[in-house]
Design a binder for these strands. Structure first.
Length: 370
DNA sequence: GAGTCGTGGGG
DNA sequence: TCCCCAAGACT
């Protein structure tokens, strides 16, 4: 089994420096079994890879390593810079925990045991196993989405993986090649990503076809067995882009707990039943910032889907009337020149609002001149 | 232990 | 207001 997979991986695996640059030695080679890699870049990559596809995270990793190329750089960095480097990747607590962990570990070398890595904020069993097998070639199993799917099919598991965690970990551990754990774990994930894919797996190309229970059963794509998904709630959010008399715009930093923690945003909140959206915006700004505004024209309306809710943002330009803004429901608030908004980390939906705002202000300038 | 936490790609 | 999913962790 192991040799079949490794032989497949030697030919078809994702072992290109352009694909997984963190997996290569400083002189550009895939490491030999007795060679260690510096764990810093691998740590950053593995955290970025949590619930995130390789090709999506790679440009973020490249940029991160240009700016925060060492542990010392990360320790010294401000949180705003860390979140800016993460902007667009999602699950922003990953970035804040990474920053926090770096500061905790600043004095000592990075951990080299499973227990020590598991104690690091943001590191669970899969990420710890991936770091240790990747960097130090330690025989520690992993159980990510790829491996879970491969194992579910291989064993023809009729139980949803969430309910059979223990079995899946045992399978992963039993399969792991004790001599080449680094290559084997990479091969297992590459198999899931390239061959044993969620929708239409390429069983004809699979080195484990003859061992696969799901293939034998005739319907590999029916595995892993799914839990029934629950309906996702939908809400309308009124958002105010508040401008003062000198043309600055009001933004606030969200609390660290909860959705989009630590990021900046234009203030607003949920529309209540029967409420006009203009009234929602005026009310939310009164409740959360203690200011009075005149709600003006709509800037944009946009739908945005999160993991477990869908929102429609209805964004209106507002004129500030009175009241010094107070962070009653946020970490801090401030007035910012529109051209300085790029210095603050915003969620994706807000980035779209900013682009529209900049366009709008530019058009305003032109029409006033003519 | 079920919910919470983002975003972009692809069917 | 499609759907599912991704190198999961934390509460």
């Amino acid at each position: 089994m192991r040799q079949q997979l490794l032989a497949w991986w030697e030919v078809h695996g994702r072992k290109d420096i352009a694909i997984k640059p963190w997996m290569f030695t400083t002189d550009g080679r895939w490491p030999e079994p007795n060679e260690d890699l510096s764990p810093y870049g691998i740590w950053i990559a593995e955290v970025m890879l949590q619930q995130t596809q390789l090709r999506v995270m790679r440009p973020y990793w490249e940029q991160w390593m240009l700016v925060l190329s060492t542990m010392q750089h990360l320790v010294a960095a401000e949180e705003r810079q860390v979140l800016l480097l993460w902007q667009g990747l999602g699950y922003y607590s990953r970035a804040r925990r990474l920053h926090q962990a770096a500061r905790q570990l600043a004095a000592s070398p990075l951990p080299s045991s499973l227990e020590a890595w598991l104690a690091v904020p943001g590191i669970g069993r899969t990420t710890a196993g991936s770091i240790l097998s990747s960097a130090l070639n330690r025989p520690v199993p992993i159980l990510d989405g790829n491996v879970r799917r491969v194992l579910a099919r291989l064993h023809g598991c009729l139980e949803p993986p969430q309910r059979a965690q223990a079995s899946f970990w045992q399978w992963s551990e039993a399969l792991l090649d004790p001599l080449r754990p680094r290559d084997f774990n990479q091969a297992l994930m590459d198999l899931g990503a390239l061959v044993c894919t969620p929708r239409t797996p390429s069983c004809q190309l699979c080195p484990w076809q003859s061992s696969c229970a799901a293939y034998a059963a005739g319907e590999p794509s029916h595995f892993p067995v799914q839990d029934a998904s629950k309906p996702i709630p939908f809400q309308v959010i009124g958002v105010g882009v508040v401008l003062n008399e000198v043309g600055e715009v009001l933004i606030d930093q969200r609390l660290n707990e909860g959705l989009l923690g630590g990021l900046w945003e234009f203030p607003g909140g949920k529309q209540e039943p029967g409420e006009a959206i203009e009234a929602t915006i005026a009310r939310e700004l009164r409740e959360e910032l203690a200011i009075e505004v005149q709600v003006g024209e709509q800037l944009i309306a946009l739908d945005h889907a999160y993991s477990h809710k869908k929102l429609r943002f209805v964004v209106h330009l507002c004129r500030w009337i009175s009241g010094e803004p107070k962070p009653l429901a946020s970490q801090q608030v401030c007035w910012v020149k529109p051209e300085d908004l790029s210095g603050y980390p915003f969620p994706a939906a807000n980035v779209r609002m900013i682009a529209t705002l900049i366009d709008h202000l530019r058009a305003d300038m032109l029409s006033q001149r003519s």
